[in-house]
């Protein structure tokens, strides 16, 4: 009555089957994206800084863009004083963010594809020319 061997084989098959997705993905992890910063506009900068602190931009640019959107559209405040260096920026997705980050495909999209997010902004907001040509 004690089919120890059969049970062990069954268990082994079960374990293999259950952990297959993990084992299969092992060693082939997708490398983290490296957003490129080699645009003409950024190369012109002496102080290679974003509108705010890089870490803040990396983690919170989505909320920050919403903040910009509401400032411009709902409160009619169209300049932004950077807390990073006191510089003034025009509040605009197309004319400010994308002037510097004109390589949308190698910058914004490199992360977004990795994280599988598809911002719908580009249904209306026009992508920079360079990105479009390489599409």
């Amino acid at each position: 009555m004690y089919d120890l061997n059969k049970i062990l084989v069954g268990l082994a098959i079960f374990l293999l089957f259950f952990t297959f997705p993990i084992l299969y993905g092992m060693g082939s992890a997708v490398p983290a994206p490296k957003p490129k910063l080699d645009t003409p506009e950024i190369q012109k900068l002496t102080d290679k800084k974003c509108v705010e602190d890089t870490h803040f931009m990396r983690t919170s640019h989505m909320q920050f863009l919403n903040y910009w959107r509401d400032k411009a559209v709902r409160e009619d405040q169209r300049t932004y004083d950077s807390k990073l260096n006191g510089k003034k920026y025009d509040i605009s997705l197309q004319n400010t963010c994308m002037k510097c980050h004109s390589n949308k495909k190698d910058f914004c999209d490199s992360c977004h594809t990795y994280a599988s997010v598809k911002p719908y902004c580009w249904d209306c907001h026009i992508e920079p020319k360079a990105a479009k040509e390489s599409m």
Partner: peptide, 13 residues
């Protein structure tokens, strides 16, 4: 006619 688009303004959807 993409050249007709004003790159400084959005379209709508």
């Amino acid at each position: 006619k993409e050249a007709m688009l004003n790159p400084e303004q959005p379209t709508r959807t």
